[in-house]
Write a protein that binds this DNA or RNA. Sequence first.
DNA 1: CTAAGTGCAAAAAGTTTGCATTCCG
DNA 2: CGGAATGCAAACTTTTTGCACTTAG
Lengths: 156, 156
Amino acid sequence: MDRQPAELDRFRALLQGYMDKKGLRSTDQRKLIVETFFHADNHVSIEELLAQVRAHDPRVGYATVYRTLKLLAECGVANERRFGDGLTRYELADDGATHHDHLICVECHTITEFEEPRIEDLQEKVARKYGFELRSHKHELYGVCAACQKVRRTGN
Amino acid sequence: MDRQPAELDRFRALLQGYMDKKGLRSTDQRKLIVETFFHADNHVSIEELLAQVRAHDPRVGYATVYRTLKLLAECGVANERRFGDGLTRYELADDGATHHDHLICVECHTITEFEEPRIEDLQEKVARKYGFELRSHKHELYGVCAACQKVRRTGN
DNA sequence: CTAAGTGCAAAAAGTTTGCATTCCG
DNA sequence: CGGAATGCAAACTTTTTGCACTTAG
């Protein structure tokens, strides 16, 4: 996944600020896990991330990966996501201005992101109608992606 | 949860048809679990449902409840739902014409249902735009419900 | 130094499965 | 009767935790 260095710097600063404030320490493992996460595909599962981390340093324990990702989620750098498959995945947080949601292919499990401001607006209306103070949301569309439909038509 | 008897009859017929087709049997446990589910609050967790079932017959095993709920989901009578709390919950399926989604209070964990056809329309547009054949979706709004906001303001 | 972090293995928590037994049709 | 269903316990999967050891600040 290609990311703009500036975007990552913003997240590095956010994490650093949070760690300073809480008196948390910067260890080699944490740096490795965080940078691996930054350069991994979006929506990596913990298992996938652990494998990539261990390619650089096989001694990293999986508890450390769990703990580091929880930390990233806490400080707003990452979001925890659970799509249908029983795995927890993490994605880089949004930049504040935009928000994206997901299309998930039920056949090949590909995850595509989409943005639709009009849906976001309607959501806020719904929340207001119920006197609900909106904090976050999850909007996932499940179906068959274009590629899988094609495969199905052509018999492969 | 108050439900119309006619609605439940439709689901009983749906289940019966599925069981007939598959050569499945109607046992006392299954009947008890299904009827308990029909008359329980919507979005019951398996644990809650098991407790209610055991109030009538303490010998029912939890594997049977799991298996029966999977069956209900398979035949379209129930939907499996996982909100943030790590529990699997089941709700009665929609009636085909309407579809509802959820507002979830992050403080008291109350689940409220909402319907917004305009969002459903926009969803379909998004799906079309990506050449995606839509099968189902999940739309959950997380925030603080009116009651919890009030508690917070009045200090209790 | 000393409190935070790590790695490991054990513990949790939720769900699924294997198997002998029961019982529907 | 024969195959489905049940109940139990054991197995599994994913995540969390306790603890002795290490290390950043």
